[in-house]
């Protein structure tokens, strides 16, 4: 099952900031079912979109081998509803990065107007939560390529980021069935 509430990365600066875009369409189930007759995009999914934007920003720091989970929605303030045809622009900035978690500030704009502000706390899971990865590396690589993360991702000095070797190996295995 797909659970993506962002469509594409527009900007990605390692350890600092990520900007994603989410297009809202009437073709999406949550709009129809959430409040029949008044289709709008649920705020909870906007928070999830920010969690994905910020979570991937954090996971990349350890080459996607850190298991990052949304631990707390510290603050979420919504200024307006979002409906079919709207495009969300989600900006996640790392406010604090520690060994066991991080705090991300999120802001969302629609038509260059503020739509939402939030602060999210993420936890990095240690071995006490088993050592299984959240994603099959090849799958995750494919998802991140689709989201254009590697196409726009740069280090703070402007040099492009590279796809981690373990993900390339996983992708190769996924496509060929052969382990490198």
């Amino acid at each position: 099952m797909r659970w993506f509430w962002i469509d594409r990365f527009d900007k990605f600066v390692v350890g600092q900031e990520a900007v994603t875009v989410k297009n809202v369409t009437l073709g999406e189930e949550p709009l129809d079912d959430y409040l029949p007759g008044y289709p709008h995009y649920p705020h909870s999914l906007i928070i999830e979109g920010m969690a994905q934007t910020g979570g991937l920003l954090l996971a990349q720091i350890q080459e996607f081998q850190q298991r990052v989970v949304l631990a707390k929605v510290t603050k979420a303030l919504f200024h307006r509803m979002v409906g079919p045809g709207d495009q969300l622009r989600l900006t996640a900035r790392v406010l604090s990065l520690q060994d066991d978690g991080a705090i991300v500030q999120g802001s969302v704009e629609v038509d260059e107007q503020p739509q939402a502000e939030m602060e999210l706390t993420f936890a990095f899971l240690d071995q006490s939560f088993s050592d299984k990865p959240f994603f099959i590396p090849g799958d995750l690589c494919r998802i991140l390529r689709t989201l254009k993360l590697f196409a726009v991702g740069v280090h703070p000095d402007g040099t492009p980021i590279q796809i981690p070797q373990h993900m390339l190996d996983g992708e190769y295995e996924l496509l060929t069935g052969e382990v490198t």
Binding site: A71, K72, L95, S96, Q98, D99, D100, G101, T121, A123
Partner: peptide
């Protein structure tokens, strides 16, 4: 436990101090 991450961050900001864990 995860709240302490947030509390420490907020105290660091409020008092402009650094709090080693």
């Amino acid at each position: 436990s995860i709240d302490f991450l947030d509390i420490v961050f907020k105290l660091e900001k409020a008092f402009a101090i650094n709090i080693p864990r």
